[in-house]
Design a protein around this nucleic acid. Structure first.
Length: 276
DNA sequence: CAAGTTACCTGACGGC
DNA sequence: TGCCGTCAGGTAACTT
């Protein structure tokens, strides 16, 4: 689930539950995620420490202690984080647990185990954070992520526009869903060569990307109070997608049937007329 | 170097 | 019911 808007909503939802909390224990089930979970390190640098900040960079969640250790969590394709009472039964695929001083636990659940957990040490976290994100592009809402910046990055590139948008080294946080939705909004064919857009078109696409990401965050944010609801359902699936997963349905704009096509190995959805 | 493909892992779903 | 192939919102390591 987690592209930029989902991670942002999770971040905002976790913030009030985590900041100021003291961590009492960190445990794991020993399963390797994308990389092994450094449980010993987590224990050493997180237990008896207090959380100072929770923030997001790209699709990563960053949790910082007052001693400047930085816990970095990526949710991969299927990762979820929940705040649960210690007493509540653990679920299948719960892999890592952070116990707090209020008898609640942050739990990382990840069926496919494409997620990851890293720890940057207190002494070097500031420097290592830059290193860690050295090949991550700017945030879509950052000033440097301008239409001209995108045009410059795309210059001469023949790759499909949609694949281009999904490259996190160009622009952070856009995955398959929001690449599809942004291109529909901007009325551009996902297969177009990235280098073929005019300045005016980059302005349009840039605007739609921000608009759609912001809208998705708002949709998630509106249900943020459910974040730790007993149902375990966090509301960030509630946004209605216009084309993602909708092949065969009528285009919301012109009623032409939406198409599906593989681009760069990923399912891509578009209106053959509006995005022709 | 750019661009495309594969691998990682489990579960849900549709067809037979 | 059950078996099998296909597909899934991410990313890095490959290959071409």
């Amino acid at each position: 689930m987690p592209e930029l808007p989902e991670v942002e909503v999770i971040c905002q939802g976790l913030f009030p539950h985590l900041v100021g909390r003291n961590i009492r224990a960190v445990t794991g089930d020993g399963k390797t995620l994308r990389s092994p979970v450094p449980i010993d390190l987590l224990e050493e640098h997180l237990v008896n420490r207090t959380i100072r900040d929770v923030r997001r960079r790209a699709k990563y969640l960053l949790i910082e202690t007052e001693e400047n250790a930085l816990l970095i969590i990526h949710l991969g394709m299927t990762g979820t984080l929940t705040i649960s009472s210690v007493a509540s039964p653990r679920k299948t695929h719960d892999h890592v647990f952070w116990l707090f001083d209020n008898d609640k636990e942050l739990r990382l659940n990840d069926v496919r185990r494409f997620g990851s957990v890293h720890l940057l040490l207190p002494d070097e976290a500031a420097v290592m954070e830059d290193t860690f994100f050295a090949s991550t592009g700017p945030e879509p809402f950052a000033v440097e992520c301008s239409p001209d910046y995108l045009m410059l990055q795309a210059k001469g590139k023949k790759m499909a526009l949609k694949s281009f948008l999904m490259q996190n080294k160009i622009i952070a946080g856009i995955g398959n869903i929001y690449a599809n939705e942004s291109l529909f909004g901007a009325q551009m064919h996902p297969s177009r060569q990235a280098g073929s857009l005019t300045r005016h078109e980059w302005q349009r696409l840039h605007k739609l990307i921000r608009q759609i990401l912001q809208h998705a965050i708002s949709c998630g944010g509106s249900t943020i109070s459910d974040f730790m609801g007993a149902s375990g359902e966090s509301g960030y699936f509630q946004m209605n997608f216009k084309v993602y997963g909708k092949n065969g349905n009528p285009c919301p704009t012109c009623k032409t049937l939406l198409k599906k096509k593989q681009i760069g190995g990923r399912a891509s959805f578009y209106c053959p007329k509006c995005q022709g």
